[in-house]
Write a protein that binds this DNA or RNA. Structure first.
Lengths: 221, 221
DNA sequence: GTCCCTATGTGATTTTTATCACAGACAAAC
DNA sequence: GTTTGTCTGTGATAAAAATCACATAGGGAC
């Protein structure tokens, strides 16, 4: 059951919910529940069954693949207004998760039980269309990712990563490495190279982009 | 417009179509058209807009990402009974293709125009569920692929590729390399290694798997 | 048979990435 | 201040892949 304040926040983040019929909207609010997860929580993990459909109010989820040797690679990030398509996939395909989701910051989310999810999907065009779009976008992202991992060198991928974050970037080299699926030392060395080119300025847990045009040129080479 | 014989073949490959209402089924058959494509045809390509929803009757489609330097990587294969989810993604997300599709053999397919696709999706639970499942499966495949490309060595990926094909395998090393996103010489050398282990026997355009258990063990190391 | 095209084998070399092993640097805690 | 823990820099080395440059071999066309 969702309280009024949360309901309005939910509708703000997910405008498509406004298009649901009043009755369905009420049913959703009745069936759903709010969860608070501290940063670092494993929201879901590989091989785990699905709980329900998450709607993020604040914070976000890093969805990653972890290798047996401890390395990891970020598949994508779920932000408020989106939902974890992986979960939809589980719910729709009746399979289990194939990746791990980790709360990056403290997180509030509304969890829609599987049954309610299926009901909405069957009855509400707006909801269906929303889910289809999510699938579509994710598929595109993943194909891009595969292509990048297979064909691009790490320096280009790193440059890309940097220019897609707001400068100054607050992150350790390890975090960047995990996002790229590589090792910390490599990222450190590449960053040093960028710094020597005058593209970035490095500090502890901080990277200032000083020549984003050059970085972009390099990334798209 | 689809003739009777083709209709029955279509229903055989796509049993879910039987669950459509008679009227919708008739509408589908009226709106759709049959296409014959010779092997090697580029069925769709990156940045191209979507024509419609393909239903394969025979042959199959290799969906690949091509790198600027000529290398390529197979994302997945579409076989009769499946449909190209990438197309659904385009139709639903109103975007363009993000990969290339190539007819591997001569191909017959039924093309469902975008409008008919959307109608069916809105009206028919069975069709919707079919499309959702396709999405779900593909997403899973792609995540596996990303993980493999990022974390596995080529020898393991090659072993995996081999054991998932019926022996004897008829393919040039170049074809295998393209499937893995690597170079021919590497594949040749790795295959030689496998042959030395007694796992395969090599011939011109032919690979006989002589110890699939060992290959499997190696692949899953 | 010869010619020719494609497929394969292979050495040599380079590039890229990973791994290991520390040293130094910085910031917060005490 | 000192201590402590995390973060970063860096050399040395190894491993994996890619690249280049041919040699050879098989199979069909003639």
């Amino acid at each position: 059951m969702i309280d009024n304040h949360t309901q309005s926040r939910l509708l703000q983040q997910y405008p498509m919910l406004r298009e649901l019929s009043g009755a369905d909207q009420a049913e959703l609010m009745a069936a759903a529940s709010v969860m608070h997860l501290p940063a670092g929580t494993v929201v879901f993990d590989e091989n785990q069954p699905c709980q329900g459909f998450p709607l993020l109010l604040s914070g976000n989820i890093r969805v990653i693949k972890a290798a047996p040797n401890g390395r990891e690679l970020q598949l994508y990030r779920v932000i408020p207004g989106e939902s974890c398509i992986l979960t939809s996939s589980c719910l729709l395909g009746h399979t289990r998760y194939h990746a791990r989701g980790i709360a990056e910051q403290d997180m509030e989310m509304v969890l829609l039980p599987a049954a309610a999810f299926h009901t909405l999907l069957g009855r509400q065009e707006a909801f269906r269309s929303y889910v289809f779009h999510l699938f579509s976008d994710r598929l595109t992202d993943l194909m891009q990712l595969v292509s990048a991992v297979a064909f691009q060198k790490l320096d280009q991928r790193l440059a890309n990563l940097l220019i897609n974050k707001p400068s100054p970037i607050h992150a350790t080299h390890q975090v960047l490495a995990d996002e790229l699926g590589s090792a910390r030392e490599i990222v450190s060395r590449l960053l040093k190279g960028f710094a020597e080119q005058g593209w970035v300025k490095l500090g502890r847990e901080q990277i200032d982009i000083t020549d984003s045009a050059a970085l972009k040129r390099f990334a798209e080479l």
